[in-house]
């Protein structure tokens, strides 16, 4: 698989390590009243879809950036990749 790195172009997936669902970026509020249940879901439960999946890849053998890669889990087709920092910034802007 080739991952279209937003800064470095097409890179071999071997240069990356895989973490999992991009929802892992949305850490629950530890001060919320139901924080324990929210963290349990956050740590252990996954949507695990068959089809389009947004997921975190770390460019360990490259520029050490975290990417949010959109990939089809049935065909392995990679539909896009963004810098995770950009996704987090956009999310923060959006929630203002």
């Amino acid at each position: 698989m080739l991952i279209p790195h937003p800064l470095l172009g097409l890179r071999d997936a071997q240069e990356f390590t895989y973490l999992g669902d991009a929802n892992l970026m949305n850490r629950p509020d530890p001060n919320a009243p139901n924080a324990e249940a929210m963290f349990c879901d956050y740590v252990f439960l996954r949507d695990n879809p068959a089809g389009v999946h947004r997921e975190l890849w770390y460019h360990e053998q490259g520029d050490r950036s975290w990417l949010v890669v959109t990939r089809n889990t049935v065909t392995h087709e990679i539909l896009g990749a963004e810098l995770a920092s950009d996704v987090a910034l956009a999310h923060r802007e959006g929630s203002k």
Partner: peptide
Amino acid sequence: GSSSRVMSMAGMRLPIES
């Protein structure tokens, strides 16, 4: 292998990745 797909039809999320 397909547990998440099938159990999602019953509204469940599982501690599983395929």
